[in-house]
Design a binder for these strands. Structure first.
Lengths: 340, 340
DNA sequence: ATTGGCACTCACGGAACTTGAGTGCCAGCG
DNA sequence: CGCTGGCACTCAAGTTCCGTGAGTGCCAAT
């Protein structure tokens, strides 16, 4: 049904359309690509491709543009990761090298991705369900306020200020700190809360209620850290390249970008790293974003994907380039995170 | 030169134009506002106002629109803070009440401001030059990596991972922690770095170099925390209301929103709280943003402004409303921060 | 000083027309 | 049988050409 030449035609259509943003006709197609056949032949092939639903005409007597199905075929079969140029590789390396902080890594990644792909980039902060408690710090701020700091193995810090009815003396604070740490250090976050429930019992009755309060705050901090689904966004300015159709394509996307929950759905379930997921148009799990595509992959040290990162753009995007950039950045970030 | 009626006319023009986004003519003006005079009179007044540079015509035979100078006069002389409705006050209270975290306060404020003003909201994180060191925590992560955590009086936490040539034993870590804390706890961040420079001398020569390393990292953390100029942004989706002129008004703003440095310049030097600063069009310190205005004020407990927050929008914005909202949110946030 | 009247201007919108890229179909050719 | 050149047809987008009306500036009269 679809012989090699028809696939070549489809590929050519996708490439041209992505580049020019204009429907592409048979004549211009044979001019730009050396297909070795005449426009008439291409027209016949196009007719078949259209019948099969891979391309469509915006209106009669216009060129063809790929459908979502067409892009899908293109991505699945007709392209492989476009190798990065040396300059791009260097850019990635230098850009991410200087990062100190986890925050810093995330922010740099976002900017880098946005710059490489000229799209809107999204990087999810590493989820920490797999990480463990590194240290718990307890310190009195004032006579009636206590600060609880939770440090995780991936270097993130969660803090809680707790209002107390009265001050705890230094000794009790030290004991609390010690007991908390023995109970949870090295434990995965998933277990941490359970390990401290019985902690208040070890304390003198006057302190018991206070310790209960602290334990509750600790559990809250852990829960927050685990469910923490922060994302960083960059490259919104690239939205201008979306073209004219403001209300239908840009507005919903801008709205989605404010709804981090939606974004997380967009990034989707983490597949294994080095496997880039592409969602095209209607495949995106959000009705408003039928004209946008998402290219994402997960990242993280080893085979434990920590989180996802990717780019969002119009369905007419440079898939090979975006996929390559997303993949490369994800791998570099993974590497940096496992080093650190 | 400008009698009361002319000022009334200007006010009416600004209000109408802000509402309708269309040039306003003499006839519609007298219809909508009860000025008590005929259109011809208004026309004469308009001619004067135009001569003085307060209003202009986009083209001959169109209505008038305010110039930046016109808005300026309007803001300075013709308006006072529009009192908030009860619903708005309640919204502010409930919205900000539930905040736990400093991050949370900032994020909620941004969303709140964006919602109230239907503009793009910017909230600068409290700068901490005035805050003091609350606690310093030192903990070995692995045998060759040490974590340094700096906790400030305003509840922010800065962390540093330091790669060491070899492990420090628990005892030395404890001593280091103790010495660091005695040296800097309670000290303003501005002095903290200077207070630890001589710290290595107290240690055994083998540990000296390591401690020097830690001290350097500490100084870095302090510096980072002081110069930390993070901002949170919200309401980008409101940009759609900017109207059609995409490339000239929206694109540069989107770009500016990515450049946090630019944003901080926009928010401007902190004036005293409860004094709302308005920058209109060309007054904004960024050539690309000649069509946008910034309404900002500083916030923070007492008379120590910690940071600024505000909204950015088209010059044709609802100044009284925005100013009131910005002011109200700033005062609430200040209150919450001084409570916490 | 204010007003009604009047001639003038010009952006905007619709109608009619032209242009040209692109298509589908078909008959002929290797 | 697949490919090609030719041809008639379609239709979005651009162009030109009014007509309309909101709005202005000026002036003489109150």
């Amino acid at each position: 049904m679809l012989d090699d030449r028809k696939l070549d035609v489809l590929r050519a259509i996708v490439e041209d359309y992505v580049r020019t943003q204009e429907p592409v006709g048979s004549k211009t197609l044979v001019e730009r690509h050396s297909l070795g056949v005449s426009p008439a032949t291409v027209r016949n092939d196009m007719a078949v491709l259209e019948e099969e639903g891979f391309i469509t005409q915006p209106h009669t007597s216009a060129g063809r543009i790929p459908t979502d199905k067409g892009y899908r075929l293109f991505v699945d079969k007709l392209t492989s990761l476009k190798p990065l140029t040396g300059a791009e590789k260097r850019a990635i390396a230098t850009f991410l090298q200087g990062a100190v902080d986890l925050d810093d890594v995330v922010h740099r990644s976002v900017r880098l991705l946005a710059q490489l792909t000229k799209q809107v980039a999204i990087v999810q902060y590493p989820t920490l369900s797999r990480s463990t408690v590194r240290h718990v710090e307890v310190v009195m701020l004032t006579s009636d306020r206590l600060l609880l700091v939770l440090i995780t193995s991936s270097g993130r810090v969660e803090q809680r200020v707790i209002e107390l009815p009265r001050a705890l003396d230094d000794e009790t604070v030290a004991e609390l700190r010690a007991r908390l740490n023995t109970a949870v250090v090295g434990q995965p976050l998933t277990d941490a809360a359970a390990r401290v429930t019985s902690l208040p019992e070890a304390f003198h009755r006057d302190d018991k209620t206070i310790v209960t309060q602290v334990v509750a705050a600790f559990a809250g901090a852990v829960a927050d850290e685990r469910s923490d689904e922060k994302v960083a966004i960059g490259g919104t300015a690239n939205l201008v390249r979306f073209g004219e159709d403001f209300d239908r394509s840009i507005k919903p996307l801008l709205e989605a970008l404010e709804e981090h929950v939606v974004l997380l759905r967009l990034l989707g379930e983490a597949t294994s790293p080095s496997l880039v997921t592409v969602r095209i148009g209607h495949e995106v799990p959000h009705a408003q974003l039928a004209a946008t595509s998402v290219v994402a992959t997960s990242y993280g040290p080893d085979e434990h994907p920590l989180a996802t990162l990717g780019v969002v753009g119009p369905t007419r995007m440079d898939y090979p380039g975006s996929m390559a950039a997303v993949n490369a950045v994800a791998r570099y970030v993974s590497q940096i995170l496992s080093d650190a």
